[in-house]
């Protein structure tokens, strides 16, 4: 059969194609990796994608200094190593880093507060890109501002590199609670809510009608164990990012595999007990409840 399809009508980088990519990640675990060897471990453990970066967030915290986009050559190596999607992180507002990631072949770009922000006032105009973006958020208005800029996926910010799930829980609860609040409002009350919270009104209505964010919503920031991942799924997340929690653990392969299985069995405590047994200890971490303001990454780019 020969194709009579009109190639002229082929469209790339549409909202449907970008948001559709994020939907294919649902129910999955996206793992931070620094080297191609780590990428191989992540794919074998069952990751749905890997996030390439120069150092995992826990090491970025320890090291200090300016955190930037990773060497594009390292991204290329990881792309050659694995068959799953490869994502890359750029600094908030650093349009050129994002263009370089797209040119290198990154399947999704994370405009991330884990790196040092390049622009204090503006995020990247993400709609202009063919590649989809994921952005962090601590609240519903923040999530809707990022979606309005063109983000195809939202993740909680949490507090990256701490191994403490506390802030991811706080952010996910805040987003869910605000959605329940606007669902109960009239059209004019939502308009007012949008003005008061600096949220785009059209997206406030869209979210209230769907009863959920209009894009895929993952958990991120401080997830370190199978139990953490299952907890975030029980709070309504569509999937999980694990940063330092895999390669900061005693046995990365066992921990990665266990987190993947925990996401599929998040509502079955007996299975979770088996899954979480004999996998070595998790990353050491640091509690983020008492963290000094200047150490908090989540306040960057709101």
């Amino acid at each position: 059969m020969s194709s009579s399809t009109d190639i002229e009508e082929l469209k790339r980088g549409t909202e449907l194609v970008k948001r559709g990519f994020a939907k294919m990640q649902k129910g999955g675990v996206i793992m931070d990796v620094v080297t191609r060897e780590q990428a191989r471990v992540a794919e074998d453990a069952g990751a749905v994608a890997v996030m390439s970066l120069e150092a995992v967030p826990a090491d970025i915290r320890k090291r200090g200094g300016v955190a930037r986009m990773a060497d594009p050559g390292a991204l290329t190596e990881i792309i050659d190593e694995v068959s799953i999607p490869v994502m890359g992180k750029c600094r908030i507002g650093h349009t050129t880093e994002a263009q370089i990631l797209e040119a290198t072949g990154a399947d999704m770009i994370d405009e991330s507060e884990v790196l040092t922000p390049a622009d204090n006032d503006y995020h990247i105009e993400k709609e202009a890109f063919t590649s989809p973006f994921v952005c962090g958020a601590r609240s519903l208005p923040e999530a809707l501002r990022r979606i309005d800029e063109g983000a195809a996926m939202i993740r909680t910010k949490g507090e990256a590199g701490t191994g403490d799930v506390n802030q991811a829980v706080t952010h996910q609860r805040a987003i869910k609670s605000a959605i329940r609040e606007i669902e109960g409002k009239t059209h004019e009350e939502r308009e007012r809510w949008a003005r008061e919270h600096e949220a785009p009104a059209a997206l406030v209505h869209d979210t209230a009608e769907r009863g959920r964010l209009p894009v895929v919503n993952f958990a991120a920031g401080g997830i370190a164990t199978p139990a953490d991942a299952a907890l975030m799924m029980s709070l309504g997340c569509d999937g999980i990012f694990v940063g330092s929690g895999i390669f900061g653990a005693e046995e990365p392969t066992a921990m990665g595999r266990a987190i993947v299985e925990a996401v599929n069995n998040w509502d079955d405590p007996e299975r979770l007990a088996e899954i979480a047994s004999d996998i070595g200890s998790g990353m050491k971490g640091q509690s983020n409840v008492q963290m000094a303001d200047e150490d908090r990454l989540q306040d960057r780019g709101v």
Binding site: M1, S3, T5, E9, L10, K11, R12, G13, S83
Partner: peptide, 19 residues
Amino acid sequence: DRNAFGRQRDSFEAPLPIR
């Protein structure tokens, strides 16, 4: 042939005739 079209930037939508 997995990922035959390339990377995500090559993903697309188009009308397709189906038998």
